[in-house]
Design a protein around this nucleic acid. Structure first.
Lengths: 217, 217
DNA sequence: TAATTATGCGGAACAATGTTCCGTTTTGTC
DNA sequence: GACAAAACGGAACATTGTTCCGCATAATTA
């Protein structure tokens, strides 16, 4: 999902014994790629506005395609939801190296944590979906962990090496803690969650000082 | 909801100046009471079997009434869900004094905690509903707390007075902890949750001994 | 370039489900 | 027993997920 194959996987036209056998699979059509992309973009926007329970028709309209097209690319509603979720997890994970390149270690860590907090804050309703038992969501928690834990781990390690954060924090635990922290936020006010996350990050920084003093609590 | 008024609230026929004014409100009809009861019973059974997302028609059929009747008593689906939830909270809270009368303090406490754990374990899907933003569910958390905290508080106090449990545990915290504990349980296997709850209760008992030794951690 | 064909598209139609409406039935009262 | 208010039943409506299939179009081939 979401990493488009530009052509068919077969090499151009050699390697095939014979000339008029099966034509192999054709390349994915350009309009199909365009529509998949448009649907993901539209779904992202609609889910953000109306929540993950928004009607598929609304998404199809926003993407400028028919419902048939939507269902051709995402056989079930849940598949579209899962694809958007994956997309957002990817975006969040990919932000880590960018921030690391543009800022100092602890600054990059702090910025990424806020980025992650924003991501979680927009996921209300999706938590319910994850526990709905729909098999389309089965792989999402693992994907979440697989992409985000290494991203955070890298930032944490860099900050620890630079002496700007304590080194004894588990990335997964931190992700979980922040998720729980931000999940409780009601309404569209992310300020309290931001403050709590900032406190956590300051705690990481404080830990670096404390351990350099030799006093780890 | 669920505490039926046997007659109209007005006193029989005096206290009214005049004879042919407004006939006041009539008593609630017998069939209406019967149907409300039947609907709650049916909903309880159906929700337990098919989850809280079961179709209203299924409930109406099981109760032996038409959907119109269902909607007369519960204007929205969510109202029926909320009513059943209240009913179950009441049943759980009411079990406390019964258990207290039939068993020793710490035994009653242990039994009630398991009773509460069972209640929570059947509530998967309802947690999602509570966070759905539907105003029909707004009052449920408060009701939950109002009924169950005193019930547990009484059992805890009795056990503490008898020297069978530690006295420094907050009832609300304990309820929340057990809820989180049992909410994670997958599938229909309540055994792990039972074990965890038992461990918690044993911890309460251990605390009694520890504090009698004067060593509270 | 023109013909061919697999691929993809659109949206009407279907199915499931929450909700409303209204003619009919039942109940309580006089 | 007659009457009116209350309640009932279920058909009908609205919304939404999903399927189906005739038609359009992009890639391939001659």
């Amino acid at each position: 999902m979401f990493r488009f194959v530009k052509g068919s996987i077969v090499d151009d036209k050699s390697d095939d014994q014979g000339d008029a056998l099966v034509p192999r699979c054709r390349a994915v059509r350009a309009d199909a790629q365009r529509n998949t992309h448009a649907l993901l973009d539209a779904a992202l926007a609609v889910f953000a506005t109306s929540g993950v329970d928004a009607p598929v028709r609304e998404i199809a309209v926003k993407a400028g395609v028919g419902v048939g097209t939507l269902y051709r690319h995402f056989p079930q509603r849940a598949d579209l939801v899962a694809a958007v979720f994956r997309h957002e997890v990817d975006a969040c994970a990919d932000a880590a190296p960018v921030l690391a390149a543009e800022h100092g270690p602890s600054e990059a860590l702090a910025l990424w944590m806020q980025r992650y907090a924003d991501f979680i804050a927009t996921k209300r309703g999706l938590a319910s979906a994850l526990h709905s038992g729909n098999p389309a969501f089965d792989s999402l928690p693992a994907y979440f962990q697989k992409r985000l834990v290494p991203a955070l781990r890298t930032l944490l390690d860099a900050a620890a090496v630079a002496g700007e954060a304590r080194a004894d924090v588990d990335a997964y635990e931190l992700l979980t803690a922040v998720a729980n922290l931000c999940m409780q936020v009601d309404g569209g006010c992310p300020a309290p969650a931001h403050r709590m996350v900032a406190l956590l990050v300051d705690g990481l920084r404080y830990g670096a000082r404390a351990s350099s003093d030799g006093s780890i609590d």
